[in-house]
Amino acid sequence: MSQARNHRIGGASRERLLIVCPGRGTYNAAEWGTLNRLAGGREWLARFDALRDEAGMPTLTELDGETPFRQSLHGRGEHASALIYACAWADLLAIDRERYEVVAVTGNSMGWYIALAAAGALGPDEALHLIGTMGLRMQESLAGGQVIYPWVDEGWRPDWALRRELLALIESTHGREGAELHLSIDLGGMLVFGGNETGLARLTELLPARERFPLRLHQHAAFHTPLQEGVKRAARRELASLPLRAPEVPMIDGRGHVWTPWSTDPERLWNYTLGEQLVAPYDFTAAIRVGVREFAPDRIVIPGPGATLGGATAQALVQLGWKDLDDKAAFQRLQAEEPRLVCMGIAEQREWLLAREPMPSLSA
């Protein structure tokens, strides 16, 4: 690896990391117990628990250990969001900063709120308040829902004609016979649609069956669409004093816009976080594109829980031709030779970021 690209501390180079924070849907039955295993007894988790208890909600320690997993309970916005954040926070704190330099932070959907904490634009307790508040407001309204559908083939090769056809379904469906349908998230090789029940039912009828798709996401509202206008108004009132500040490292939002430590206006950041971000499509693919092109990371790291965001991130990298990737097989070969995409929800990959022994050097 070119030493010029690496920051050096005490004569030792640090690898450059792009952090990609996970969103909803990453804490499921298989992840139950993760938080207590990684952070049980930690002071910050006890503080999170105390804040939850003060708010009249079950603690994260209880949800992750004492209370058997039930999707109807653990999947609720105010619980799922906080559990995901706490698991991700445990992973972020575990990264060896003597060996790794975080050069930028982004996330998918709710992962934007985690990114605010990861980049230092919010303190950890403040981020818990934001995440808990937004999760509760979304759960209370549950305005609309989401359906996900792939537009790449089984080898992750883009089918641009199919993508155009899928996007055209929004225009042909929205506004007809009471249907509301919007693009919610541009998620690597998948499109996430948000809409009301009429719009989603009509969409599901039109989409050809493909393995497990179209897939309705459980307990998900129509995030990042105009159906969240009510949530936006409530959140702006309730979180008017949210103490956002300039980040310590650059953040990439759901438009691909970069918020830097030296140019961020906290008021504009508040307006985006509790404004456009809630009611306009979230372009996760653009965030990844900007992250790899503008910050040239050596590795891309996805904190846990789980590893479901890994596929979408890898698909975005294939679309970009990053490291000459052109399909799923090429990505798998790269990972086998020298993993560049590290999912901390996979135990053996998490260990790579904790190990003190030097990893094999990357090729230039």
Rank of each mutant, 00 (worst) to 15 (best):
residue 156 W to M: 10
residue 319 Q to K: 14
residue 315 Q to W: 02
residue 262 W to G: 09
residue 306 G to D: 06
residue 281 P to Y: 11
residue 337 E to H: 15
residue 39 A to I: 04
residue 334 L to K: 02
residue 333 R to H: 12
residue 282 Y to H: 15
residue 254 G to M: 04
residue 96 D to T: 05
residue 107 G to F: 00
residue 182 H to K: 03
residue 248 E to T: 06
residue 152 V to H: 07
residue 38 L to T: 13
residue 128 L to V: 04
residue 178 G to R: 10
residue 107 G to L: 01
residue 32 W to V: 03
residue 136 L to G: 02
residue 348 E to L: 03
residue 70 R to C: 10
residue 342 V to W: 08
residue 36 N to L: 04
residue 212 R to D: 13
residue 181 L to S: 10
residue 31 E to G: 05
residue 10 G to S: 05
residue 5 R to M: 10
residue 23 G to V: 01
residue 253 D to P: 02
residue 11 G to D: 13
residue 342 V to Y: 00
residue 45 L to E: 05
residue 46 A to W: 02
residue 82 A to M: 07
residue 79 H to E: 06
residue 334 L to P: 01
residue 9 I to S: 08
residue 122 L to S: 08
residue 186 D to F: 05
residue 230 G to N: 08
residue 91 D to T: 07
residue 142 L to Q: 14
residue 238 E to N: 08
residue 83 L to E: 03
residue 51 L to D: 13
residue 52 R to H: 07
residue 18 L to R: 11
residue 101 E to H: 11
residue 293 R to T: 15
residue 154 E to M: 01
residue 185 I to G: 11
residue 164 R to E: 15
residue 295 F to Y: 14
residue 11 G to P: 00
residue 105 V to R: 08
residue 124 P to S: 03
residue 183 L to R: 12
residue 51 L to W: 02
residue 17 L to R: 03
residue 40 G to M: 04
residue 188 G to T: 12
residue 266 P to S: 12
residue 271 N to L: 11
residue 200 L to P: 04
residue 167 L to P: 14
residue 27 Y to C: 06
residue 128 L to G: 04
residue 59 T to V: 03
residue 362 L to T: 13
residue 258 V to C: 03
residue 111 G to S: 00
residue 242 L to I: 05
residue 361 S to M: 09
residue 90 A to F: 04
residue 28 N to E: 14
residue 53 D to N: 13
residue 303 P to I: 01
residue 297 P to S: 15
residue 352 W to L: 15
residue 229 E to D: 09
residue 48 F to I: 07
residue 78 E to G: 08
residue 239 L to V: 12
residue 113 Y to P: 00
residue 51 L to T: 05
residue 359 M to D: 13
residue 21 C to Y: 00
residue 257 H to F: 06
residue 213 F to M: 08
residue 133 T to H: 11
residue 248 E to H: 04
residue 284 F to T: 15
residue 95 I to K: 14
residue 44 W to S: 07
residue 310 G to P: 12
residue 158 P to R: 12
residue 167 L to R: 06
residue 122 L to K: 12
residue 120 G to S: 11
residue 192 V to S: 12
residue 315 Q to H: 04
residue 176 R to E: 09
residue 8 R to L: 12
